[in-house]
Design a protein around this nucleic acid. Structure first.
Lengths: 220, 220
DNA sequence: TATTATTTCGAACAGCTGTTCGAATTTGTC
DNA sequence: GACAAATTCGAACAGCTGTTCGAAATAATA
């Protein structure tokens, strides 16, 4: 006569989605299993049954959100094969921000990465190889092209390229943090065109920055 | 016959410094009073005696580190009164990074801010007025000058200025996060000249970005 | 030295944490 | 419908959390 799991489509899936929101909001350590289960309308022991651990749940969340992210917003999102470096650069930033700010239901993908950046939990290293490294290498290729274009006379300086990459990612991740903070204090959600506008402005800013780095001498 | 507090210069001060390190490392919520007291060689009840709360300790840490920061690395660090906007901009970024990456003993000041950015604890709002807002307004003035210089024909667009500010701060905070992560995985500490080099590269990048934003039309 | 206030300590507290376990329930297969 | 496997549940667990409290120790004052 008590709660029958009829109205749902799998406790497992509900747990992953609830956990994604909570983990993205509080980080791994501060998030509690009980809060997750409450949001998922499941008992606390369900986590251990389906995922063995709180950590196992965390990994599952990462895997789930990563699969969703690369499927819905791949790095070359919305552009063709023969696109210019600028276009690919813009597409990369757009998809990055849409992954973290969009209202698609697992919109917490980017914020998970942001949380891990601020407070690495140890689980990160397991998924870093499958999530962060490919992203970083993809961006590296674009930046190298941009630098080479700006200064064809010599090979891009690896140090400068790395710095430019970090600056771009830093701007994007800061947007995720700032938005999360602002929305908690009662700011409206950004809709899709606004996110794209924001992405394009960051693109413009970063292109200017990369040019400034590329055209300068190696050392001051 | 037991531990006599002779060898120290005040439990209170030791607690604040130990707490600074731990809070900067784990954030407010994940840091534990017991770990702090262990590092400070004090009993757990000392926190409640001197600071009433864990939260009170946190506020004391902020106040302490803020006072240290503005004294040792003010925003106009190392430049004279009649400096150009570029020089003031560079000085701002240098002091920001030195506050968070330097090896001065409360080097955790910047990381505290970074932690609060990633996971606002509620205490932040109390200190935001005294720490973040002045910093933001100072930076705002510089960026406005830079934009006006680039495009004297019209007043700086407030939206663009805000975005440029966020981008600059985002790059700097990301450096703090990235460094903390890299150092945990066994990377060497940056020494002072390296930090200054890094600051100057970020300065160059950001100047290029600001110029790109300033010279572009308001809307695409 | 006697007396008072300040500081420190360890033990104990209630509450929350992740996890385990057996019973109850649902689902799948014949 | 009968049986077995998979799933869900609530209760209970040991461990850690921040905090409290009275006693012990120190410092200050006379």
């Amino acid at each position: 006569m008590r709660a029958r799991p009829v109205w749902d489509e799998g406790t497992k899936k509900r747990l992953i989605e609830a956990a994604g929101e909570i983990f993205a909001l509080h980080g791994f350590r501060a998030a509690t299993v009980r809060e997750i289960c409450k949001r998922a309308n499941a008992s606390v022991s369900a986590v251990n049954y389906h995922f063995r651990d709180k950590e196992g749940l965390y990994e599952a969340v990462f895997e789930y959100s990563h699969r969703w992210a690369v499927e819905k917003y791949p790095h070359d999102w919305g552009i063709g094969a023969g696109a210019t470096p600028e276009e690919r650069f813009r597409a990369f930033i757009r998809s990055f921000l849409l992954r973290g700010l969009g209202d698609g239901f697992p919109a917490w993908h980017g914020r998970l990465l942001a949380q891990e950046t601020a407070n690495p939990s140890g689980v990160l290293s397991k998924v870093a190889e499958t999530i962060i490294r490919p992203m970083d290498e993809y961006l590296d290729g674009i930046v190298r092209e941009l630098v080479r274009r700006e200064n064809p006379s010599r090979d891009p300086d690896g140090h400068s390229v790395q710095l430019s990459r970090m600056n771009v990612i830093g701007q994007c991740i800061f947007q995720l943090h700032a938005r999360q903070l602002l929305e908690l204090t009662g700011l409206e959600h950004l809709d899709r065109p606004q996110i794209i506008d924001l992405a394009d402005e960051i693109t413009r800013f970063s292109l200017g920055g990369i040019r400034a780095i590329a055209t300068a001498g190696r050392s001051e």
